[in-house]
Every structure is written in structure tokens, then in C-alpha cells.
Write a protein that binds this DNA or RNA. Structure first.
Lengths: 194, 194
DNA sequence: GTCTATACAATGATAGAC
DNA sequence: GTCTATCATTGTATAGAC
């Protein structure tokens, strides 16, 4: 792997763990095994490197979510797969956690991939729910945009609860609570009339 | 107001806005209009002052939530009042945001009030839901702990979505989505048999 | 491309005068 | 109680040699 790649990967890890404000160029260099000159040769500074790292994390998140949401089964099954997918719950979300970073939210360039990613995720989920409603896999009364926002919020908020508790348990409870509510609106396929 | 109080209040504001890592003693002193000597006279250092500030924010959050949850109406009404209460959505949660701060989560003393507050909130909500189930205000199948976790997670995650979007809209969507799902499990009081 | 040297502000605190 | 030094360390770079 190239030095630039190692720098980006180290930055991804540190942003995830400590946020933008808590991540120093020196820490990045040490984790990447690169010197200062090397870092400033490949990137103009901390914001530039952070942008590259955030973009890469965003791509990865998107790919992971897409794998769940384009999987097999009914709309409910796919939302369920997304909610129950394996996660390192106590680490939180590498993209969502950046929203609490004032220097990220305050900088249009850094915020853009964060906004874009979470917007995409909500829209993608809304599409799945909407499809489900059309197919009769979800009750007709459901508002896809609202349900999508609830699903993403439950995951993001679940991380908050888990980190506060020092345990993944509240995350799992929150997700199960939402799934319980959703299951009640997902009619089982009816074979009686066939 | 005493100097110590002004220091605590300034610290509350800065922790809310910038987190623990992003808040320096100097910034606190300037916002409080106090000198260094003054701060180090009243508090042993940054962690000590932060602890006082976090505890105060925790008390305030608890009081606000309790006001909604002990209000009038059915269990559904009270959960709804909590979810729809006025919030400065784009500022996020002064307690929840601290869970993303490695120096807070990594310090047992600083983490304790955060954990305790979110635990209390979930338990309090679970109590309301449980009461609702007993009274027939919620469907018997609901798991109060799960629903409580979903409610708190939706709020905490709603803040994340709102800050990413730069708008309270996704927060409102997430909350409405959850309320839609909950309303379907909250039978209207039946007068037919009376 | 990578390294070392240098710079200069901010951080988090201590000491001692008032 | 509050103020003004003072201090060691880290943060975030730039300059120039190799």
C-alpha cells in the first residue's frame, strides 16, 4: 500500500475514534509510519487529508448498506437485514459521529460528504419501503420518508446509547423495538387466496 | 451569579457546542469573564470543571424530560409529548453528544453522569410504556424496554441527521415516523362497551 | 518522495503577588 | 478570590537538505 493510502487509512481510524478536533497530524503520521514531510507532500494539510479520509469512509458505508438493501427477500426483510447487520456497535458510525464535530460541520467541504451520505441512506431506505408498500409487503399507510428517517435515526441513536452504557445492549434493544413496530405493519404474504 | 457558576455555565455551553476535546480552559475563562487564577481557585482543572458542568446539564435534561413524561393524558400522549417537545434540534443533545468524546467515555468519572442520565431516561420511558400496556393504552405485545430504547435512540439519532442536513427536517421526519408506528399500537379508548 | 530543523500559537497548568 | 507571569508540551505547519 502506498504512503498516501496508509495516511488516509490512519486518518479514517483516528477520525472514527477521536473525531476531527481530537486528531492531530502527528498522531496520523505516527500511525501511518510516515514523517511530516511525507504527509505534507501528499496533502496540503489536515483538512485536505481529512476530506480524503471522510470520502473513503463514506464510500465504504454506502457499499455496506447497499449490500443489505439490495439483498433478497421482501422490503421488510431488507430493512431488517440492514438493521441487524454486524456492526462494531461501541465504535459508533464513522460518518455519523462527524456531525458532532464543529470543525467538520462548520466547513462546507468537510460536511458535504457527510450530508450526502446520510441523505443517500435515507433516500435508499425510503425507496425500499416505498417499493414494499406498492407490493403489499408493508401497510399502505406508511410514509416511506418518515420510516426511512426513523430507521437511520434508530441506528445512529443506538450507537449513542451503547457508548453511554459501555455495552451494545441498548443498541440491540432500540433496533428490536423498531423491528417489532415495523413487523406489525408488514403483512405476511397471503397464500389463502392462491 | 457567582464566578464559579459562570464558569460552570460557560463550560456547559462549550461542551455542548464543541465537546470536551474541543473546549479549552482559556475559552471557558473568556466566556465566563474570569481569569486563569479564578478558574484554578474554584476547580482543580479542566476535568473537574467539566464534571460539574456535565452534572448540571444532566439535571436539567432530567427535569425537562420528567415534565413531559409526568404530564396529563395516556401513555401514548406522554411519549408523544416527550418526542414533540420544543428542542434546539441543530444543537443536538448536551449529554448524548458527549458519548462521541473519547476523553469523556475513557474517564469513568466523566462518563458516569452521562451513562446514568441515559439509563434513567430509558427506564423512565419504559415505565410509562409499561403503565400504558397495563391500562390498555398500548397493545399488550409491546416490549416496554425496547420501545423506550427506540424512542431515545430516535431522538439522539434525529439530532445526527439534522446536523448532517443542516436542517431540523430529518429529525422531525424520524420522530413522526416513530409516532406513526406507535399510534398504530395505541388503541383509542373504547366507549362502545360502556 | 522522504527526512530533519525550525517556527510560532495554543493547551493546560503552576507560582506567587495583590 | 483574582491577577499576572511563567512553563513544558502539543498542534500545525514551512523550509530546505537528501
Amino acid at each position: 500500500m502506498s504512503t498516501a493510502d496508509r495516511l488516509i487509512e490512519s486518518t479514517q481510524d483516528l477520525l472514527w475514534e477521536r473525531g476531527y478536533v481530537g486528531t492531530s497530524p502527528k498522531a496520523i503520521q505516527q500511525r501511518a509510519g510516515a514523517g511530516q514531510g511525507s504527509m505534507y507532500h501528499h496533502f496540503s494539510g489536515k483538512p485536505d487529508l481529512a476530506l480524503a479520509a471522510i470520502r473513503r469512509s463514506a464510500e465504504q458505508l454506502r457499499a455496506t448498506a447497499e449490500a443489505c438493501l439490495s439483498g433478497p427477500g421482501t422490503a421488510y426483510d431488507r430493512v431488517r437485514a440492514y438493521l441487524l447487520r454486524e456492526r462494531e456497535v461501541l465504535r459508533g458510525c464513522p460518518i455519523g459521529r462527524l456531525t458532532m464535530d464543529p470543525d467538520v460541520i462548520g466547513d462546507a467541504a468537510l460536511r458535504e460528504p457527510v450530508e450526502e451520505t446520510l441523505d443517500w441512506l435515507r433516500a435508499r431506505l425510503a425507496g425500499v419501503v416505498s417499493e414494499g408498500v406498492e407490493r403489499g409487503e408493508f401497510d399502505a399507510g406508511l410514509d416511506p420518508e418518515r420510516i426511512a428517517a426513523s430507521v437511520v435515526a434508530t441506528v445512529q441513536g443506538g450507537y449513542v446509547l451503547a457508548r453511554a452504557a459501555g455495552s451494545p445492549a441498548p443498541f440491540d434493544s432500540a433496533v428490536q423495538g423498531l423491528l417489532d413496530l415495523l413487523a406489525a405493519r408488514a403483512p405476511r404474504p397471503r397464500r389463502s387466496a392462491s
